[in-house]
Design a protein around this nucleic acid. Structure first.
Lengths: 212, 212
DNA sequence: AAAATAATTAATCATTTGATTAAAAAATTT
DNA sequence: AAATTTTTTAATCAAATGATTAATTATTTT
């Protein structure tokens, strides 16, 4: 059986274990849980099938590990920016949009993967949002409500606020196959347009939420 | 073997065939191609497994049929509104948003299903957009470009225009599990908020595209 | 270097899964 | 109502799939 924490273990094990994990991450985010076979992962990682179970016990456990990390990646960066009260809300928004767009450019499959799998097991996955969001949620909500009271921004339900903000940022990546097709835009152009949105989205949100 | 077009056939056949198709539609849109087993469909439809292959030859053929119909449903209504040149662009936009939101309220799983499967087989599926979009595309594109020239709306790349428009409309439904969780909103409230967006989105698009 | 531990492999298992077959039941035609 | 055709069913197949096992190789400890 496996015993971790030996010296030899540490260097060699992490290498194969990491190989499997990376292969699994690529495939799972590309095709979703059900469409990926353990043998695909083994082949993609260049290892023997049995090693997958040796290191991760089962397909499902491996998947859960990867999903947890993907969620973290998706949320954590944002939460940290949200919490940073040294910068004003507007500027924080610019930072988040910029952060998101860079991340999505690098990992364009991430959002559709998360959204799809979140529908598969809503309660279990969505609950992982709570601890990370939790603290930031109260702050940002209060801030927005304050600004509404002060008449700085329009009186919009927080759902509209969040949906618009994340939707404008994330949706183009989720729908890029369709978008690029319809608008006849190649990958390079698409990336440039997404870069443009770093400046545009905060501007748009501002005009949307500005009181008339 | 099967021979269609007999009288008896027509009434009875359509009934079971339709039962299978509806069950398959429910399951496929909920869980995606790979996660649905033919036995699930048979059970959901309350029929013998062999009947699925009797009527549809294979899981894949059944799926393709359903996907084609889903795409139609998603695009066709919009295309018809787009083509209708009797109403002005702005008003047409309101109609489309309203149409979309009503449809998405009724079939909330549709967009994530289409987006997911479109990633699985981009060329094959996306090409089905072309004939439907094709004709409308040229018109709307020209119109928008005209309005840009006339200085009526801001000079935005068509990708931004489409991404914003569809993103604002569709994204909340795609992300509803997360959205509802984070904003602590129940199903009824969520639906009400989506109804609100029928008026809000055209307004927002207008302010976004208005020249400063 | 011998012993002990950990990593890797090929072979195999038990289920699951998509699909088919041959026979039975139901409906239609003659 | 007999013959024919269509629909439905239970049983079965072959391949795919997740997982395990027992043996082998590599590494670490003593």
């Amino acid at each position: 059986m496996k015993k971790k924490n030996s010296v030899r273990n540490r260097s060699a094990k992490i290498s194969t274990e990491e190989k499997i994990k990376e292969a699994a991450r690529r495939l799972f985010t590309q095709k979703g849980y059900a469409a990926v076979k353990t043998r695909d992962i083994a082949e993609e990682a260049g290892i023997n099938l049995a090693l997958l179970n040796y290191y991760f016990r089962s397909k499902e456990k491996l998947f859960n590990m990867i999903m947890a990390e993907s969620l973290q990646q998706f949320i954590l960066g944002i939460a940290s920016i949200l919490k940073d009260e040294t910068v004003a809300r507007e500027e924080r928004m610019e930072k988040i949009v910029s952060y998101y767009i860079d991340m999505l450019t690098q990992y364009p499959d991430l959002p559709l993967f998360i959204l799809s799998e979140m529908k598969r097991q809503p309660q279990q996955l969505a609950s992982k949002f709570d601890p990370v969001i939790g603290s930031a949620r109260a702050n940002i909500l209060k801030e927005v409500q304050n600004e509404i009271k002060e008449g700085k921004i329009a009186n919009l339900h927080i759902v509209h606020f969040i949906a618009n903000f994340i939707g404008l940022t994330v949706f183009p990546f989720v729908a890029s196959p369709m978008l690029q097709r319809v608008a006849q835009v190649n990958d390079k152009q698409f990336k440039e347009l997404m870069q443009e949105r770093k400046k545009l989205i905060p501007l748009w949100i501002k005009t949307i939420t500005s009181v008339k």
